[in-house]
């Protein structure tokens, strides 16, 4: 995803979903909506996140076509929220997402299909299940939410 949020013009309403840090990142966009006199809503995601997930899904599903959503959350919390957003019906063209903080990566073991979570930037890792030495690739599967790990040494 883009590193900087981009303001998408001519939507009938804008939504912002973020935590404290996320709001500061989205702030330029919120200001733009205010300047344009666009209709918008902000939902602040505090500490009790698990509890709020159903409420968020409900809030999102009540929206009408023509709505545009910005999400900015810690990387670790972003993925489950994205699944919710898409399940409700927002398409890639109807929202932008951004993460902040520590980022990790899932690696799909080419031999045993299990997933090992590693810090972003690792190049070679051992599969935590079958212990094969894997070379982390940039080939990504959205379904597995993981990058493919190839045999590192023959």
């Amino acid at each position: 995803m883009k590193n900087q949020p981009i303001f998408v013009q001519s939507k009938r309403k804008y939504l912002f979903l973020a935590d404290q840090k996320g709001l500061t990142i989205l702030n330029p966009i919120i200001e733009q909506a205010i300047i344009n006199n666009d209709s918008f809503e902000v939902v602040f995601l505090g500490k009790q996140k698990e509890f709020l997930h159903t409420d968020i899904a409900h809030w999102l599903s009540q929206q009408k076509m023509g709505t545009y959503l910005y999400v900015c959350l810690p990387w670790k919390e972003l993925h489950p929220i994205k699944l919710k957003i898409e399940e409700v019906g927002f398409s890639e063209e109807e929202y932008q997402w951004f993460g902040h903080g520590d980022k990790s990566k899932n690696v799909f073991c080419c031999r045993c299909h299990e997933i090992t979570e590693v810090a972003n930037g690792e190049v070679e890792i051992n599969c935590q299940y079958c212990h094969l030495l894997l070379e982390v690739s940039d080939h990504y599967s959205a379904l597995r939410h993981a990058y493919l790990g190839y045999v590192a040494k023959l």
Binding site: L60, Q63, G89, S91
Partner: peptide
Amino acid sequence: TLLDHRIGTHV
């Protein structure tokens, strides 16, 4: 009527 369609609608 296009105003009323919920998010995720295709027309």
